[in-house]
Design a protein around this nucleic acid. Structure first.
Lengths: 210, 210, 210, 210
DNA sequence: ACCGTCGGGACGGCCCGTTTGT
DNA sequence: ACAAACGGGCCGTCCCGACGGT
């Protein structure tokens, strides 16, 4: 009975490799990360690596998917009850991002999707497509919330939810880049706070408080 | 007078290498660009490369500096006469950015500074410092204009020019990243137009339409 | 029983690399030998090389150890029965050296230890230490024999066995160097014959012909 | 009149290069020494190097010649008055060698001739020939002295002066090698002292002092 | 199915010994 | 006498298969 523990023999070699790749590539990028490093950090040999992932590109792709899956999960938690005011939920989403910067789980303020997009978009067409899908997913997700907010708040100023979605996405990615380079995560917080105010300004009545 | 062929006699091998490196690294990043590629594109041999740049890192650094120098030059042109209204000048700066996206001189919508920052900030401390300086330079440059605008337009809303500077910088870098990944440069244009409107909103009198 | 082909299945890639390195470095020295040459001569690729030896220095070190191991084995054979007269055994050792010159197994009259010592002693401190150990080993080995001989032959002239050991070691290494340069191995033979006579002179009774 | 000082404009660039090469190659060998190092140590540019020496091999050859020239000069000084007893002069020669070890002018106990011979004898036939000539020169020089001693001391024991010359040469080179590797120059001194005693033993009358 | 050992090529960055123009 | 440019080659090592054992 003691042989071959049925439940996760060793936390799933595959998952360890994936986690290892995510951690490494978030720091060093795709080209800067070697298969050897991934294996070493995961505590397995190259044989195992190529058993689960036929090539470096495959694990790169899987890593991004896995990363975005985790992020989406977090967003769902941050948003809270779908029955609430969409505007409140949007703010909670942004607050969640801010919180993820203020207390990064792994002391690293880096989005794997942005990292690899920057690096490979122009050279790996198929990966670019995959990254684009994730980017559009996030933007569409936010745009959808904005549309709901527009319905809930009829007196809002006119704007294009999709455009605002892309702006937020761009601002988020750019903020991470700048924060990483300056070594000052506070910039992300400031930027998102400003964005929150800007979004709110779309939903207040021009002279309605008099 | 006819000696020394007027048409770039050798266009300065060093400059050719630098241009080559800038072009390649904007597309493929630092790690993705090989010294051989740089040499081949510049039409020189490895010997020449090593003569001018002792290592790949050196040319990487020089490439970023050269790139930012060229950008700064462009900004100076875009801004126009320093005697004019600072707010007008800021808009011209943003219009210049928009124009550089609409008609990219080299069909590539990528900022070398952002590219290499993303890739190397966490792994090459010394380069990070250099990149940070350039980023701060741009932000400070914009913040300065905003401060002048605040003086010229006393009735403006209260805001922190530095924070706005960082927001614009982040938005710009993030927009480029997103545009590259989606393959849709229009996003940059839309984002900057929205930013223009947002900035303007800081300088309009609340009840100034009467 | 027929599995595992009895005739060296692959003669152990590692050993082939080692033999190759020994042969090459004995002829060309350390710096003059390239990893590619070692691989080519061994009939394997660089991948195999790097698998067994992490660097050129590692194989250099291993080659010297392997070489000295082989030599020590030969000395043991040459010396013969430990129960015999130490003086006779010493002469057999020197005769063995002479024989190895007269009929060199590989047509090369070169000691790898001397070759690499000459080349690297002043520039690779850690290797120098290793070489020194081997040199001291040989000298101590001979000195030990001399001490035994002194005991067996009480009427010997006074001398320091260690000093004589170093002299023989030096003479041996220098003889190989000179023989290689002049292309005349006979010099080694002559030198060793003279050394034999000189050693014998320590053990003859001054007026012992009566 | 003050331009272009006629007497050595700058201590002869050529000589500086030669000295530089000698110093470097004595430490690192031929392959381990780069032309750049030679130039840097000499304080000149590569242009100057190739002006005076068409290739690395040429300066290597010249360095050995220059080195041996300097040594020969020293030997002449050590030997003293040619009218004296040849046996005394031989001892003075060996004492000179010992002194050069005890107080090495440049803190380095290395003979360039031995260094390059070891390294290149088997791979550079033409250089081997040159080195061989120098080696034969020294040996013949010593053998000549021994022959004179034999004439001056008729009661000597029978021996072949050439063989003894080669033995001394071999011992000298081997001693340097061993001293360098062990880091113990005293070995050279001990070896030469033993050699002196051995030579003397050829010239004392067996029982002739009674 | 899982995973470790061994090996294969192909470059990557660096740098070396030279030649060329001046 | 020198700065500039040239190729080629070296060491390292990277990404990846081919087996073989469990």
């Amino acid at each position: 009975m003691n042989q071959k523990m049925p439940v996760q023999p060793s936390a799933k070699t595959r998952d360890k490799l994936l986690d290892s790749a995510i951690g490494l590539m978030r720091r060093q990028g795709y080209a800067g990360t070697t298969v050897d490093q991934i294996c070493e950090r995961a505590g397995v040999t190259k044989g195992a690596f190529f058993h689960y992932f036929g090539s470096k590109e495959v694990i790169g792709r899987a890593a991004v998917d896995q990363w975005c899956l985790g992020r989406a999960e977090q967003y769902r938690v941050d948003l809270g009850n779908p029955a609430e005011d969409p505007l409140v939920r949007i703010n909670r989403l942004l607050d969640g991002l801010i919180e993820s910067i203020r207390n990064p789980p792994d002391k690293m303020v880096v989005c794997l999707l942005g990292m690899l997009s920057q690096e490979m978009a122009l050279t790996h067409e198929t990966m670019r497509t995959q990254f684009c899908r994730h980017l559009e997913g996030w933007t569409g997700f936010v745009a959808e919330l904005l549309k709901e907010a527009c319905i809930s708040h009829p007196g809002h100023r006119a704007f294009d939810p999709d455009q605002v979605g892309w702006l937020l996405n761009s601002l988020w990615q750019g903020s991470l880049l700048v924060a990483k380079t300056t070594g000052n995560p506070q910039i992300v917080v400031d930027n998102l706070e400003q964005a929150k105010g800007w979004i709110s300004s779309h939903f207040v009545q021009p002279g309605g408080d008099s």
